[in-house]
Design a protein around this nucleic acid. Structure first.
Lengths: 161, 161
DNA sequence: ACCTACCGGTTGACGTGTCAATGATGTTAA
DNA sequence: TTAACATCATTGACACGTCAACCGGTAGGT
């Protein structure tokens, strides 16, 4: 009986038109939100969100330094992506790389003073932008719901591979 | 009295730790969801989501063709971005460009037969992926909540500039 | 000792996105 | 008429991400 109805919602069918509309709205709006925050951070502080993530991690690290691999797993990036990004940040004087004393063939990433200053200057405007673009847009209940939705999506992503 | 409490939630302060945690979870998870869908589409059909958006719009257009500018505003892209993307799609034989007969200096974008076939082959796997990665991850109430959250965020983004 | 396998990190090629500048062609106002 | 201006589309420079290949070095097994 469950197999007989073409448009049924059993778990193996395609999304309904309504689900699809919500999907598109959701994915496009969250993408737009991300790029709006990106451009706010850019014009406020000349940093990308990637720069910010790296600088944040280094700021909180012992001696404002981390091994490249640890940094990558800490912020959830592939090593290759981090390597490319560190190259660009090094050119701009935000970080430095040097041979790791303790671990052979390990690279230590250091926060420079200009990097630390940039990060300090960026923090408040960035947090303010998050408030304006995300927190202020939603009711407290919606914020909680957003947290639960994110958790459910993340759990499902993890389970699916 | 409202101004006296440092950590209050009046509307001008920075996000709380809890709000910040939810924000990070939300923005990172939605980004991960997008890239997971991107890679599903890539391995199923050798298309990017950009390709898919362009092919979808052209498929639904009169004569499977559109003026470049109309296409750009239809899918919400900058003309520059579309121009770059069409160049890559043209190299792969998915679309063709020609002078527009009616409008001077207008470019007409045409769906090729291989482009149409690619799109037809991509549709079902893509919809299935949306179901598996998004719809199946959430309860029906959460899906509705996601729609409302997206609408609220979008409205706020639009109002803010 | 030697071969292999892994590990940390880098690199190159390429797709993608933004920004600012350009070219080509219409429209408008002095 | 001509100069200013808007519009449509493209281009080049650059940032960013992924993928696969690579390199140097350490560790295990024979």
């Amino acid at each position: 009986m469950t197999e007989a109805t073409p448009g049924r919602r059993g778990g193996r069918q395609l999304p309904t038109a309504e689900e699809l509309r919500i999907w598109r709205d959701f994915i496009e709006t969250t993408a737009a939100l991300g790029s709006r925050l990106e451009s706010r951070l850019q014009s406020d502080s000349s940093l990308s969100t990637g720069d910010y993530a790296v600088l944040l991690a280094l700021s909180e690290a012992h001696g404002q330094a981390m091994r490249s691999s640890d940094l990558a797993s800490h912020i959830g990036w592939e090593r290759s992506r981090l390597s490319h990004h560190l190259g660009r940040m090094e050119r701009r004087g935000l970080i430095r790389r040097q041979e790791c004393a303790t671990v052979p063939r390990g690279a230590e990433v250091l926060l420079t003073t200009t990097g630390a200053e940039k990060f300090r200057g960026a923090t408040v405007p960035h947090l303010r932008a998050i408030r304006e673009l995300f927190v202020d847009a939603l009711t407290p209940e919606q914020i909680l719901a957003a947290g639960e939705i994110a958790a459910a999506l993340r759990a499902h992503l993890d389970v699916l591979r």
